[in-house]
Design a protein around this nucleic acid. Structure first.
Lengths: 226, 226
DNA sequence: TTCATACTTCGATGGTAGTCGAAGCATTGA
DNA sequence: TCAATGCTTCGACTACCATCGAAGTATGAA
C-alpha cells in the first residue's frame, strides 16, 4: 500500500469536468486567458480562477502575465503527452462525450496536440520521416539522422537552435485517434510551425482541428510521401 | 469545447485516494477480493464495495466469482499501461506520496507491472532481446523475430498458444522508474511467469516488488546479457 | 486622477460523493 | 437446518468542493 507516485492527485485534478475542459482547450496549443478558459468550461471567471490556481500549483499549468492579461498554458511537453495518452485510453474504452459529430473527422485527420501535429497527418508525417531514414528508431526514442539534419535545414529549420534547448528534439506521442505514434518534441513543434508559416495549414478557431489548404495538401504529400 | 474523449470520467475514477490505492494494489497482478482491497485502501468493506462497483462500471476492473469470494482485477492490459504511464507522469512531477523508503530501491530494481516485469530488470530484459535481434522495433510496436520464436520455444514458452489470443504478443509499456520501455503483452506475461516458475524470482507479499534469488540473478544475467 | 478591464480573494450556499452502521443476500460447511 | 463467512444494498451523516455574488487588487487608458 502507498507504493509509488501519487496518481490520485493528478486524477482528481483531471477528474473535474470544468478542469478537464480547460486542459482540453489548452491542448489546442494556444496560451489562453482565464476569461477564455471560463468560456470553454462554461463557468464564471471566479470559478475558473480557482480551478486555474489548482492546476498551476499541481504543476500542470504555468502562467505568464502580459499587461493585464494572464496567459495560461500547459507546463511541459510531458503534460500534453500524458493528456493525449489519457484520451487514447478513454477512447479505447468508448468514453466519448458526444456522438461523433461533424467536427470529429476533421480532428481525426489533423489536429494540434499541444504544440505539434497529430491525427492521420501527424502519424503519416512520422512514418514518412522514418521510411526516408531521416529519423531513426532506437529502442524507445527517436533520433534525427544526418540525412534528417540536412533535410530539416533545407526546410528552413535551424538545427542548432533546436539542439540548444534542453527539450528532446524528437519524441513519440501516442495518437488517440490513430492509436499509433506521431512526432512530438521540439522538431515536432518546429514542423507544425513550418506548415502554418508556409500557409499550407491553418488552425481552426476554438478547436484543435487543423485545416489544410489545397496547395498545402499537395505540398504535404510531396514533402512526406507515403 | 467538448472535443474528443472524456478524460474527466477516468480522472475522477482515479482521483479518489481509496480507489487509487486499490488500483495500485491491483497493479501487483494478483486478483484481489474486496476485503483485501479494503485493507489496502484503509476503508471498510462497505465503502470498498461501492468503489469497486464504480471502477467496474467504468470499465477499469472486472470481477469473477469463485465460491463465496469475488476476485477483482484490472480489466485489460490497456488499464495497466495507462496506470503505469500516469505513475510515470506523477513521478516526473515529483508527486511522491512518501519519502523514498526502504521498499523504494526494491521497486525500482524489479517489480510487477500488472502481469509483466518492470523496473530496471524489465528494461534490461527488453533491451537484451532487442540487441539479440529476437525482438524487432518497427515504428511503434514490437514484433517477435524468427530467432525470437525459436528462443522462447527453447525457454519452454509455447509460441502457438501466445499467438492464439487476441492480445498483442509484444508491446511496450513505459516504465515510471526507468522512464524507458519494458516488455508487456502476452510474451511479457509469459516471461514473468517463467522467471517465477523456475524459482528464480519471487513476488513479495503486499508489494509490487520482485525479489530475485542469487541463482536467479545469475540465470537472468545469462539469459539476458547486457 | 478617474474610469475601465482583467483577474483574484472572500464568503456563503448547495450539491455531491465518500464514509460507515445496520440489515439483507448468497455461498459454504457442519 | 443452522451458523459462519463474504459481500452488497440501504440509509444517514458528514465533509468537502465546485459554484457564484460581492468586494478587493492590479494594470492600462484617458
Amino acid at each position: 500500500m502507498k507504493e509509488g507516485p501519487d496518481i490520485a492527485l493528478i486524477g482528481s485534478l483531471i477528474g473535474d469536468p470544468a478542469r478537464a475542459n480547460m486542459l482540453t482547450a489548452l491542448m489546442g496549443g494556444r496560451a489562453l486567458t482565464p476569461t477564455e478558459l471560463a468560456g470553454h468550461a462554461g463557468i464564471t471567471l471566479q470559478t475558473a480562477s480557482s480551478h486555474l490556481s489548482k492546476l498551476e500549483s499541481g504543476g500542470l499549468l504555468t502562467q505568464r502575465k502580459q499587461g493585464r492579461h494572464r496567459y495560461y498554458q500547459l507546463a511541459e511537453d510531458e503534460v500534453g503527452l500524458m493528456l493525449e495518452n489519457l484520451m487514447g485510453f478513454a477512447a479505447s474504452l468508448g468514453m466519448n462525450r458526444h456522438r461523433p459529430g461533424p467536427k470529429d473527422p476533421a480532428l481525426r485527420k489533423a489536429r494540434v496536440c499541444y504544440n505539434h501535429l497529430a491525427g492521420d497527418y501527424g502519424v503519416r508525417m512520422l512514418d514518412s520521416l522514418i521510411t526516408a531514414r531521416q529519423i531513426e528508431v532506437t529502442g524507445d526514442d527517436l533520433a534525427l539522422t544526418d540525412a534528417g539534419q540536412i533535410r530539416i535545414e533545407a526546410l528552413g529549420i535551424n538545427y542548432a537552435s533546436l539542439k540548444k534547448s534542453r527539450r528532446p528534439i524528437c519524441r513519440t506521442c501516442l495518437d488517440w485517434s490513430e492509436r499509433r505514434s506521431h512526432l512530438a518534441g521540439s522538431l515536432g513543434e518546429a514542423l507544425l510551425t513550418l506548415l502554418i508559416d508556409k500557409g499550407w495549414a491553418k488552425r481552426e478557431n476554438n478547436s484543435r482541428a487543423i485545416r489544410f489548404t489545397d496547395s498545402g495538401e499537395k505540398a504535404f504529400s510531396e514533402l512526406f510521401p507515403q
